[in-house]
């Protein structure tokens, strides 16, 4: 289009051509606004259902704008706060312990693998790499976890199986290799520092970006896990929030069958605004994620870029 004029005003045409036409820009914006809307609308919808009255749901079904509002579902959950808070407690313990452990395991092996002079490096690289290609699968893991390690119905089954990850170890190793010069580590060794000290006092503080990213993805992974709980946990006291939600889906009557209050079963069932309650629990599960999300959003993107560095 600007070919003929390119010699005369290349800077100007450069600026103009580098941008898309205003009409295209408007079209793209409209397109992404629509997509964002499709992503957001279920959230709003579920919130609206959770604050609908039982009557409104019974008469009009789920509505984007309920004909009658009610906080009965949340009041009901407040009545069940013992169950909810216990599950919340389990979730928080799992997330915190799991994330700390994940950081230690991933970064320590990642650091060791980044030391080029280490004698067992080749062996350990293979050790970490083989499971990315080949693994034992669900059944063998299940038998080992349940029958050999006896982790069933313990909080450890929710933490240990997913704390380290070959993928995150490679990300750590790549980060250490690219950002921390060998000479720095070597001079520390010459000064008489032990490797443990170098790892704890030099490497970890220098690696905050990569650690933050891994911590966030791991923490969300733990928060969202329901699968391990569904396979291994029968003990009510060890249900995470997601597992509770999953169990409620499995049987809407779960809470009804486990009343913490002394009300008779029938009266209890009748008083339970069940559909709104389900959506209210969903909201309780999502809210912490939604609140944390905007603050950590920049780490996701930077972290994904770190991960894409091949090394």
């Amino acid at each position: 289009m600007a070919r003929g004029k390119k010699d005369m005003d290349e800077n100007d045409s450069g600026l103009r051509l580098d941008r898309i036409k205003p009409a295209t820009n408007v079209f793209f914006n409209a397109w992404f606004a629509l997509l964002s809307f499709i992503i957001i609308v279920p959230f709003i919808f579920v919130i609206m259902i959770s604050i609908s009255s039982t009557k409104s749901i019974a008469e009009h079904g789920y509505q984007l704008w309920p004909s009658e509002f009610s906080l009965a579902a949340y009041a009901y959950l407040w009545g069940e706060r013992v169950t909810i808070l216990r599950s919340l407690g389990v979730s928080v313990i799992v997330v915190v312990l799991g994330t700390v452990l994940a950081l230690l395991l991933n970064s320590s092996l990642g650091y060791v693998l980044s030391r080029k002079s280490y004698k067992l490096r080749g062996f350990l690289v293979w050790l970490a790499f083989i499971p990315m290609i080949f693994n034992g699968g669900m059944v063998a893991s299940y038998v080992v976890n349940a029958n050999l390690l006896h982790l069933r119905n313990t909080i450890w089954i929710l933490i240990l199986p997913i704390c380290a990850s070959p993928f995150n170890i490679i990300i750590c190793r790549t980060f250490f290799q690219h950002t921390i010069p060998d000479s720095v580590v070597e001079s520390a060794v010459i000064d008489g520092s032990s490797q443990l000290r170098i790892y704890a006092q030099m490497i970890l503080p220098l690696s905050k970006p990569v650690l933050a990213t891994i911590a966030l993805f791991t923490a969300f992974g733990y928060w969202n896990d329901w699968f391990f709980a569904s396979l291994y946990i029968a003990d009510k006291n060890l249900l995470t929030l997601q597992a509770l939600l999953n169990n409620i889906q499995r049987s809407i009557d779960f809470i009804v069958n486990n009343p913490t209050l002394g009300v008779s079963l029938m009266a209890y069932k009748a008083s339970m605004p069940s559909e709104a309650v389900r959506m209210a629990i969903t909201i309780i599960v999502i809210v912490p994620i939604a609140m944390a999300y905007p603050f950590f959003q920049r780490y996701f993107i930077s972290g994904l870029t770190i991960g894409s560095v091949k090394g």
Partner: peptide
């Protein structure tokens, strides 16, 4: 020594299941 905890983890949760196959 620094690698040991992770190596133990790998053996327990990734390599034992391979034998379990």
């Amino acid at each position: 020594l620094l690698a040991l905890p992770s190596v133990v983890w790998f053996v327990l949760f990734l390599y034992l299941p391979m034998i379990g196959l």
